[in-house]
Design a protein around this nucleic acid. Sequence first.
DNA 1: CTTGAAAACTGAGCGAA
DNA 2: TTCGCTCAGTTTTCAAG
Lengths: 146, 146
Amino acid sequence: MDMTDQQILASLKNNSRMTASDIGKRVALSVPAVSERIRKLEEAGIIEAYTVKINRVKTGHKLLAFVFVGIEHSKHIETFRTRIVACEPVLECHHLAGEYDYLLKVLVEDTSQLERFLSDTLKKLPGVVKSNTMISLSTLKENINL
Amino acid sequence: MDMTDQQILASLKNNSRMTASDIGKRVALSVPAVSERIRKLEEAGIIEAYTVKINRVKTGHKLLAFVFVGIEHSKHIETFRTRIVACEPVLECHHLAGEYDYLLKVLVEDTSQLERFLSDTLKKLPGVVKSNTMISLSTLKENINL
DNA sequence: CTTGAAAACTGAGCGAA
DNA sequence: TTCGCTCAGTTTTCAAG
């Protein structure tokens, strides 16, 4: 991970469809050299995935919420982790230090879907003793990387 | 946005470097047809960006935190929005309904950087009256799209 | 959708640090 | 040994029909 690799990562972050030859012009390297560096970044697990950022409002998923979850017994944690990660509306799941144990970022179409997720899915998981939901009114910034 | 477009979006979501011809095989369409659909999805703003998911730990950004922020007067909101979005460590900024006004997702290298962000940047913004920081111990799931 | 020209990618072999 | 280059063959893209 030298300076050139960081420039390549920055280029891909801005546009992952950028061609190796375009990146090569930026970092003054030949096409095979750039391809090889990208391959190694993938192999090392530094590049985890190539993806697109999709406009949620335009695809009908209008309701973004953050849900704090408290778990009661440590014996329930493994089940909770496995089950919650498999939930489609759960975009993110972070283990927290503090009052609550987990923070979920949940994306649904409307409030009725959110209600169903909270009542039918989340609260029925073993060990879930409390939760606290906050609705996002709007999103000003949302990057996945630094 | 018909079924085919959704399949194309799903393909790009899984791997944004996938070629149009590979996508074409999945959706039974010719290469120019796929390219044209992608172009229209970009034009419509449904595809907002192509990007990579980078492993944070391996690039030295080890500390992820969520910061709730309360703002005092509405006159300060515009300044706060502009300034906070420009902050490099701030990955996300959501406007919330509830006790706090904003939720920030902040990525830094270590606790000293976090301290500097909270003390030197956030708390010096006009109107910031309270904040509440939660450290992420680990991340189980982190998608940008549904 | 098909087609053909231009551009890009891949892999091998070679040379320099 | 590692890294990058050039070259040749193949694939992909792009725009015209």
